[in-house]
């Protein structure tokens, strides 16, 4: 395999990793900070992709990005209202919204489950034209994704230091404290989920436009993939400042895609992607738990041996 072929694979992994890391950053806010596992992520990712594509096809390449983010925000708002105002369990709220979004996404895509953007002017084609005669030609996917990720990280770092950001973090960190304080957990949860889902929508929009097509399944399994990336990132840069941890999320996402690319080269079939992400999430969450259980298990085994059955 030639060097350029290897670089080609790495570049694709980087593009995918960085683009999808926006979803990981969304989970960083909802899962790590608010302590809400937002299962509407898959549907919201597809929603962002669909809305972004439709707006771009309608001839508004730049408008497609804020439109996708606004759609994501709206979806997050619905999830938040269900769990804070309607008494629906937060996991169930996510699942319900996710299911509902499937129909909405097909409706957005004009009753079709596939949209093609081969001849559509998108942010990527615009930037590609700009880069045409520079040394960076051909890197528009990576550059746009990196720029988006950098903006989101800067935003998150600043936002989580504001009083509202601190209140959101406290809501996830100690709900008991928040309940008897002047922070309204309904408000903080709603804002947190809206912002997080705006990022998820943005992530979907950028992935669809860089791939020049939207499939109704583009977001399926995304929550597990993002969670796997988040947990990988946490093992590398899990402590320290918000900025450092946010960079860790991007790193986790890129590592996940690189490992996946390598596994593909080793003849792992492509359909294994979702199983791999599931196994990573299981190991990352169950591992530390089992480690705490191990001494107890050893004691019990030793005890039963001594007791002689």
């Amino acid at each position: 395999m030639s060097l350029s072929a290897i670089w080609g694979l790495v570049q694709t992994a980087l593009e995918l990793g960085v683009t999808c890391s926006l979803t990981v950053l969304a989970l960083f806010l909802s899962y790590s900070m608010l302590n809400v596992c937002d299962l509407s992520t898959d549907g919201c990712f597809t929603l962002g992709a669909a809305v972004g594509a439709v707006v771009a096809i309608a001839g508004h390449p730049y408008l497609s990005i804020p439109a996708a983010m606004a759609a994501g925000m709206l979806s997050g708002f619905v999830t938040a209202v269900l769990q804070t105002r309607m008494g629906i369990d937060s996991l169930l709220a996510g699942i319900i919204v996710n299911t509902g979004l499937y129909s909405i996404n097909i409706a957005v895509m004009g009753k079709s489950s596939l949209l093609n953007m081969n001849k559509t002017e998108t942010v990527f084609t615009k930037v590609k034209a700009l880069l045409a005669d520079t040394p960076l030609a051909g890197y528009q996917e990576l550059l746009i994704a990196l720029a988006a990720v950098a903006l989101v990280i800067v935003f998150l770092t600043l936002f989580l230091r504001t009083r509202l950001g601190l209140a959101i973090r406290a809501t996830g960190d100690n709900p008991d404290m928040v309940r008897s304080s002047s922070i309204n957990p309904v408000f903080t949860t709603t804002v947190g989920l809206c912002v997080a889902n705006a990022f998820t929508g943005l992530s979907g929009c950028l992935l669809a436009q860089s791939q020049k097509s939207v499939n109704i399944d583009i977001g399926s399994g995304m929550v597990t993939i993002a969670l796997a990336s988040l947990l990988i990132g946490q093992t590398f840069l899990g402590r320290g400042s918000i900025a450092k941890r946010a960079v860790g999320m991007v790193l986790g996402s890129v590592i996940f895609r690189l490992v996946y690319t390598i596994a593909l080269r080793l003849n792992m079939p492509a359909f294994m992607l979702k199983l791999v992400s599931s196994v990573i999430v299981i190991i990352a969450i169950a591992g530390p738990y089992l480690k705490t259980q191990l001494p107890m298990l050893e004691k019990r085994l030793a005890g039963s041996r001594k007791g002689g059955g």
């Binding site: 009083r163 601190l166 960190d173 008897s180 304080s181």
Partner: peptide, 15 residues
């Protein structure tokens, strides 16, 4: 019950 464990002393006071 009265403070957020994962947040710093400074952040808790800021809240």
């Amino acid at each position: 019950r009265g403070s957020a464990p994962a947040m710093t002393i400074e952040e808790n006071l800021a809240l």
